[in-house]
């Protein structure tokens, strides 16, 4: 199942299949390792529900919901 990263619940994992957006935000995502094919885990959300914290390429990355909405993820498992 495909979802936006911003829609994932805490603990869900998946594989990035696409990164939308343009310009520097998109480039910044790429530079931080958010590229198609990378696997991610949603670790945590901030007390106000935004930003979110993910594990990617072995480290912790935080990004806002609006930036996470640019990342398309193929969920692992498929049961959920």
């Amino acid at each position: 199942m495909r979802k936006k990263l911003s829609e994932l619940a805490i603990g869900e994992t998946g594989l990035i299949v696409g990164v939308e957006g343009e310009g520097r935000i998109r480039r910044r995502l790429f530079d931080m390792g958010v590229t198609p094919g990378a696997s991610i885990l949603v670790r945590k959300k901030a007390p106000l529900g935004d930003p979110v914290e993910i594990t990617i390429r072995g480290y912790e990355l935080t990004l806002r919901k609006e930036e996470a909405a640019l990342v398309v993820v193929e969920l692992d498992g498929g049961n959920d």
Binding site: I25, M32, E60, T62, R64
Partner: peptide, 9 residues
């Protein structure tokens, strides 16, 4: 400005 930041250990 984007908020795409590493959370270091």
């Amino acid at each position: 400005s984007p908020f795409i930041m590493e959370l270091p250990s």
